[in-house]
Write a protein that binds this DNA or RNA. Structure first.
Lengths: 242, 242
DNA sequence: CGAAAACCTGACCAATTGGTCAAAATTTAT
DNA sequence: ATAAATTTTGACCAATTGGTCAGGTTTTCG
């Protein structure tokens, strides 16, 4: 309730016992919902909202189609529930951006978190990307509400770092746009990345390398490259196989 | 023919007179095809491949549905023709990346071109983004063919700049991934950008500001910020209205 | 002019879509 | 046990989908 789950609007009889979780009751529900959501994530990521069919999701979940409607009411209901689950993860990385922390550390941690998210949850990232590319009809309230406010808050922190001369001047909002773009591209556009690199699949080493490249670019770009410490500059020297 | 238009596979009787353009003949065809492609770009951008219906495209073009099939055969044919048109524009910006040029100038020009493309052709960018997010089934050959080769070629240029100490070391391929992501995000994710900035529409001033931010981040990130010249650092000082 | 080529389109079709529902099976609570 | 609540599902439906086609109109060109 405290996060974004409030979007959810389920269709079954027990749609309003959120968080109540009677003794053992709803165990089946929770298990099936998770199963359906996982299948939905894959199908929505692959085909987009309209391209995804309830039939395809049902087959992937190994359940009859009518069962999905029992739990989520409509296709849009299922889609919204999925988005809610994804958005809950989206904001977490912001926790690194706090005044007390060293800017370089904070940005490095933020990038690592986002890159890790792209690595471990590429399908979620694609569903999110697809939603925004096509107008964000479902999550617009979130974007101009919670996200906008969070960016405002964290921008104050960054402006503080800039004012105290701890990093180069940059418009914080655009820095965030850049960070999101730089990290999520490895999930959303993975086909392109793989094609250009000539890889069939990206390995952990590839991802670590990518993370170092993004980190180096951003830190240097924010005037945070420590000239004494060669970390940022040295990170390019060893790409995982050529 | 020299570019990517080779993908096209039209359906009408004159499908094979490409480039021939008999005296006045095909004037109607060319006009209608352009009209349909424009409508298709908007609808595909809004709804994705599956979400776009031939009916919707037809209405937007002000033509009966059967007419679209007359010119492009199938929905996929129309989609491929559209992608071909878009890809032709995609590679152009690379022309700035040549050894003789100053790295800072070259990268600035590249960013400006890409940002301008995001500004003037956001729908094309979205169609392209959608295609890649959903697996690039149609343009995979292009990605692992021409694009991969181009990146290879241009990477040599960048590595040259690095070797001669003209810019900081960075993996060229990942630099390109970053440049694409940083610039295209202003087209593909414009809803998010507008929501966070609290703008209903982005003005030219907004776009210029964004371009300066991206440029500053990248140039500094590549060790190309001229300490004597305050351009990069000063560019943050005047965001278009707060 | 006249005929061939190009262009146009309303009517139609099979397939798929999201969604409903009633009846049955299962689980839970008393 | 047994009544109540929950879960399951096959069969069905109206609407929309991409695509076809025959027969028409217009344009082109000798």
């Amino acid at each position: 309730m405290t996060k974004f789950s409030a979007i959810q609007a389920r269709g079954g009889p027990t749609a309003f016992d959120e968080g109540a979780s009677r003794r053992g009751g709803g165990r089946t529900r929770r298990a099936n919902e998770a199963r359906i959501l996982e299948a939905a994530e894959a199908v929505f990521a692959e085909a987009g909202f309209t391209g995804a069919s309830m039939q395809a999701i049902a087959e992937r979940a190994g359940l009859p189609k009518a069962n999905l409607h029992y739990y989520f009411g409509t296709k849009e209901g299922l889609y919204r529930a999925l988005l809610a689950r994804i958005l809950d993860m989206w904001v977490d990385a912001f926790d690194h951006i706090v005044p007390a922390r060293d800017p370089a550390d904070a940005l490095s941690a933020y990038i690592s978190d986002k890159m890790h998210w792209s690595r471990t949850r590429p399908l979620a990232s694609k569903v999110f990307a697809n939603e925004i590319v096509h107008g964000a009809q479902q999550i617009e309230p979130y974007l101009s509400g919670k996200l906008r406010q969070t960016v405002k808050d964290k921008s104050v922190v960054i402006e503080g770092w800039i004012a105290s001369g701890r990093m180069a001047p940059i418009d914080p909002a655009h820095l965030f746009f850049g960070l999101w773009a730089l990290t999520q591209t490895y999930a959303d556009f993975d086909v392109q990345v793989r094609a250009v690199l000539g890889r069939e699949r990206l390995t952990d080493a590839d991802h670590d390398h990518a993370t170092r490249q993004v980190t180096a670019l951003v830190l240097r770009g924010c005037g945070l490259a420590d000239p004494a410490d060669g970390k940022a500059a040295a990170s390019v020297s060893n790409p995982p196989s050529l």
